[in-house]
Amino acid sequence: MTYLHNIGAYFLMIAEMFRKPTKWSVMKQLILKDIDDLIIGSLGIVAFIAFFVGGVVTIQTALNISNPLIPKYLVGFATRQSIVLEFAPTFISIIMAGKVGSFITSSIGTMRVTEQIDALEVMGINSLNYLVFPKFIALMLYPFVISIAMFLGILGGMAACVYGGFSSLEDYIIGIQTDFIPFHITYAFIKTVVFAFVLATIPSFHGYYMKGGALEVGKASTTSFVWTSVVIILLNYLLTQMLLS
């Protein structure tokens, strides 16, 4: 029953988020601040992880191709497919559930504990619109982060391939162009937008409705990470089934 209650409360929260909008001059600043915190602030870690994981994917693929009949360009092809289809949209989203998700939960949770949310409500402000809506809008730029992750992942793969001596640069470039299906990019960005919505709303839900003190803020952050990851993995399965099969 608790799960059903929470699911209902989550959807009511989303509906409430769009009601009684905050004054645009204030909202604009909140959105810009959240873009800085959630998007710009995540670029460094996303770039670092994407580059090196791209390299590792390439090395693993190259080392597992021992048959001399398999062309060398397959390393580039496999790296591109892994990164564009799964690594960038899904794996990075799980990392963002930890980084951005726990930031959202703890910042909103702390506002709840210190009565800052009550202060907003007393003033007649729709606190859900004030707190969650700018995060939702900011995370609509999340596909931009994922594009960078895709680019750097493939670049990292190329660096590992060439400097590790697994294949030539020409083979790798031929590989990443082989059998390219533009819909795969569309599929990846559809997933990214859905995951962005999940990343903005589930951690906000856990922060907004938490009860207790500082210890509970920590627990809420952990719970939010777990549930955001679970929902991303489930939606990843459903979207892949619907869009690719």
Binding site: K23, V26, T114, E115, Q116, D118, A119, V122, M123, I125
Partner: peptide, 28 residues
């Protein structure tokens, strides 16, 4: 909007300066 409230823990917005906190109801 006609109600002012002083909370037990003050409930000031951490991300804003003191002047911005005081200005908040005027901006809204």
């Amino acid at each position: 909007a006609k109600i002012g409230m002083v909370f037990q823990g003050s409930a000031l917005f951490d991300s804003l300066t003191i002047a911005e906190n005081v200005m908040f109801p005027l901006r809204m």
